[in-house]
């Protein structure tokens, strides 16, 4: 019997396809998310928009809070570690979470190196803005990717940019000649063998969810139309007027992203989404996506 293999780590993420992973800050929210049809919950003390508002250093959540959520739901539970903070990641592994998000939403612990994720039995998800970043994270052992978007803004534009960029670059690598791959690897600053994989298969070797700014059912369906394998919703649910209705509507829209009559139906009278932030009003040091590239 072998545990923590690449196949079971990547396979776990494959089982989440077409689903919605919801940020939850307590047991009550976790139960609402599960009842609404989340495929997993991300346990964290504050959702990204609250982290933004609070300022200061954002760290791993209290393990007791994560354990309470693990005990309250039967779906997988994920939790966030700071970029490069291998001890936070080891602590989360010891707690027994099902997936670790090495996340730019928290304050990075290391601005040079990410965690060596191949050394863990627990799978990791990481954010990416382009193909080079995606392949570097896979090279470090990430079993799942997500767009970085711009967390806690309720503004979908950055997630759209990142998903389009990755898919555009995949198409370019696939169309390239074999003799161009080494130069492409150099330019992308990506491992050659992974560039070769993309060239041969026309896709990433792991699944890629949308994250960072998804706040309405239509946003979720938009990301699925752009090729996302599924959706993370951070602040979008529990900062909306009616989290239960919002959560259910986002699940339905993610499962049926081209059924526009259905999306219209589930979007009716669900109350106001989170307020959101226009990108131009964020200064560079307020942007989380540029952390850990």
């Amino acid at each position: 019997m072998e545990k923590g293999t690449t196949l079971v780590k990547r396979g776990m993420a494959q089982m989440q396809k077409g689903g919605v992973i919801m940020d939850v800050a307590n047991v009550e929210q976790a139960k609402i998310a599960e009842a609404a049809g989340a495929v997993a919950v991300m346990a964290l003390e504050r959702v990204p928009s609250d982290i933004r508002a609070a300022g200061g250093v954002a760290r791993m959540s209290d393990p007791a809070m994560i354990e309470q959520i693990m005990a309250a739901v039967t779906i997988p539970v994920m939790a966030k570690a700071r970029i490069g903070h291998l001890v936070e990641a080891r602590v989360l592994e010891a707690v027994g979470v099902d997936y670790i998000d090495e996340s730019e939403v928290l304050t990075p612990a290391d601005d040079t190196y990410h965690i060596d994720k191949t050394a863990f039995e627990v799978p990791f998800v990481c954010g990416c803005r382009d193909l080079g970043e995606a392949l570097r994270r896979i090279g470090e052992g990430a079993s799942m990717l997500r767009t970085k978007g711009e967390p806690g803004t309720g503004n979908i534009i950055e997630a759209v940019r990142h998903m389009e960029k990755v898919n555009e670059q995949i198409a370019q690598v696939q169309a390239a000649q074999p003799n161009q791959l080494m130069t492409i690897a150099r330019d992308l600053r990506a491992p050659y063998d992974l560039v070769k994989y993309v060239h041969e298969n026309g896709k990433l070797p792991v699944i890629n969810f949308a994250a960072g700014g998804v706040s309405t059912p239509a946003d979720a369906a938009l990301m699925m139309n752009l090729g996302a394998d599924g959706v993370f919703v951070g602040s979008g649910i529990f900062h909306s007027e009616n989290p239960e209705k919002f959560a259910k509507a986002i699940v339905a829209a993610t499962a049926h992203p081209t059924d526009y009559a259905l999306i219209a139906e589930v979007s009716k009278n669900i109350g106001k989404p989170m307020k959101g932030i226009e990108m131009a009003t964020l200064s560079d040091d307020q942007k989380m996506a540029s952390r850990g590239v």
Binding site: M1, E2, K3, G4, T5, L7, V8, G11, M12, M70, T74, P76, E93, G96, D98, Y99, E121, V122, P123
Partner: peptide, 12 residues
Amino acid sequence: NGFGRQKDSFEQ
């Protein structure tokens, strides 16, 4: 989840 959580996932 008869065999446990993700950490107990396995190949055999």
